[in-house]
Amino acid sequence: MGLEEKIPSGFLLTTVEKLAGYMRKNSLWPATFGLACCAIEMMAVGSAAKYDISRFGMEVFRASPRQADLMIVAGRVSNKMAPVLRQIYDQMAAPKWVIAMGACASSGGMFNNYAIVQGVDHVVPVDIYLPGCPPRPEMLLDAILKLHEKIYDEKLGSNRADIIKEVELAAMNAKPTIEMKGLLA
């Protein structure tokens, strides 16, 4: 950054990764995957009435998964809907991200029974988990902003291969929740 101030105006120095991240995060198009109550809060966010999502360039909820980058799974995913969810995810073109919106999408929520998939991460890989029943529109915007930061920091090329290896190693060595010690241990 210091170099830019010494050269006469008109130059901006950055890295390819940052540029790609900047472009990707600022024009993220969500796919319509509203299922239940969370979908109504998602509509409130997308409808520009009070919680405006088009200030981030995201008000175009694309129906076609080919044109969408972000799948916001909003609502409870039943066993009948799970293959459909996976198919829509597969049809999206990379790069793609998933936000699990609401308690039901993150972990099955209050419905711990035969009909609901206990967490949409059984079906698709999730980037951001958003709790709430339903989460307020501001919470959804916060999740989207956190996703923006995550996208901005994504690496490309050999850096990406390195990061993926690191993350996989950490996941292999991670302790499962039940073996972790809580506050009382």
């Binding site: 066993n79 029974n113 009909a115 039940i178 972790m180 809580g182």
Partner: peptide, 28 residues
Amino acid sequence: LMPDDWQGHPQRKDYSLGGIPVEYKGAT
């Protein structure tokens, strides 16, 4: 309401609710 190839009739009393134990740190 259930997928077409589901076995069993869920709301009968002899059909279990089918939930899974919820995992916490050190307990379920």
